[in-house]
């Protein structure tokens, strides 16, 4: 058993940082040492920012996004196309689409996908509010931006069924060759999806 090299407060900080995605115990120690070295310029502002966000963070009651205001920044943005909703599984997917600047629409965050293995059923997802938003009218299209996994696509089919009688166009993302992808490096499933989804030039 290794001996503690610092007081319990510092050890606790290392432990907590080690729980972050992408950080293990060694990198948590490095991050802690870095914070200690930069106490004034990094540690104090970080502590304040964490405290600030912790006190203000809320889930948007419209779309399920997380923000410090409700409705969130995305929902209140009047420059976004109001007739299109992009349905994503997680907030990380919303951020990824925004990072790509791929579409100027509003979003709806499900909070996961249907997964019998993990015990996630329709009641565990943010589906009721999606149906309510569609029923409220004013929408032209719902884009199901869900992953290319069986669970995600089962969720997409489930949502399509829910919205079938709404009269709103329901679309989903294409599956196939990624930009910059070389065919001989692609997995068989992606190649097969790309062949099926081929388009006429």
């Amino acid at each position: 058993m290794s001996r503690a090299v610092a007081g319990p407060e510092i050890e606790r900080l290392i432990q907590l940082l080690g729980r972050m995605p992408g950080l293990g115990p060694r990198s948590a120690r490095r991050a802690t040492l870095h914070l200690i070295k930069k106490r004034e310029t990094l540690m104090a502002p970080l502590a304040l920012a964490l405290q600030d966000v912790l006190g203000k963070i809320v889930e948007c009651q419209v779309c399920g996004n997380v923000d410090v205001r409700d409705p969130c920044t995305v929902c209140t943005d009047i420059h976004r196309e109001a007739g299109v909703i992009v349905v994503v599984a997680e907030v990380a997917d919303l951020w990824a689409l925004e990072r790509a600047n791929a579409i100027n629409a509003k979003y709806h965050v499900l909070g996961g996908v249907l997964s019998p293995l993990d015990g996630v059923g329709p009641d565990d997802l943010n589906l009721g509010k999606l149906v309510a938003r569609v029923q409220a009218g004013g929408l032209d299209e719902v884009i199901l931006a869900l992953g290319a996994t069986v669970d995600a696509q089962t969720t997409a089919h489930y949502i399509t069924d829910l919205l079938r009688d709404s009269g709103v166009k329901v679309t989903r993302l294409a599956h196939g060759v990624p930009v910059g992808g070389e065919l001989d490096h692609l997995d068989e499933g992606t190649l097969s999806a790309a062949i099926r989804a081929r388009t006429t030039l």
Binding site: A148, T149, V150, Q153, T154, H157, T160, D161, H175, E188, G189, T190, S192, A193, R196
Partner: peptide, 10 residues
């Protein structure tokens, strides 16, 4: 590998 074909249909 069948999952791609399976997930395409409801």
């Amino acid at each position: 590998l069948r999952s791609d074909g399976l997930m395409r249909s409801a």
